[in-house]
Amino acid sequence: MSADFWAGYLSGAAGILIGNPLDLIKTRLQASKLSPGVEPTAPSSQGLKGHFDRAGTLVRGATAPILTYGALNAILFVTYNRTLSLLSPSPSPQLNPSTPYLPLDYAKIFSAGAAAGLATFLVSAPTELIKCRTQISTSASTTSFSIARDIWRAEGLRGLYYGGGITSIRDAVGYGFYFWSYEWAKQAFTSAEDSDRQAAVKIMLCGGFAGVVTWASIFPMDVVKTRVQTQVLHPQGIGEEAALLQSEHHRIAASRRLSTFEIARQAYQTEGGRVFFRGLGICSVRAFIVNAVQWAVYEWMMKLLQQP
Rank of each mutant, 00 (worst) to 15 (best):
R278Y: 04
A55H: 11
A148D: 02
Q236D: 09
M204R: 06
V275H: 04
G164P: 01
Q94S: 09
A210R: 00
G47E: 14
P97H: 08
Y161M: 06
A185L: 10
V232Y: 07
L244Q: 15
A114H: 01
V275P: 02
K49T: 01
I130L: 07
L58A: 13
H51N: 13
R158F: 10
A185C: 15
K225E: 09
F110D: 03
S35T: 14
A125K: 02
S195I: 09
T120C: 15
R256K: 13
G61M: 02
D222T: 02
D222A: 01
A14P: 05
A264F: 02
L17Q: 02
S144M: 06
A287S: 15
E183V: 00
G56S: 15
P21Y: 02
G273T: 12
M301R: 00
R170L: 12
S146V: 11
G164D: 07
T230P: 03
S168I: 12
L102T: 04
S35F: 10
C283I: 00
Q94R: 00
G15I: 03
T79R: 10
Q266V: 00
S85N: 03
G47F: 09
S32A: 15
G208M: 05
T230V: 14
G19A: 14
S144E: 10
P65G: 05
A296N: 14
D23C: 09
Q229H: 09
F276D: 04
N20E: 14
Y69W: 11
V232R: 04
V293N: 05
D194V: 00
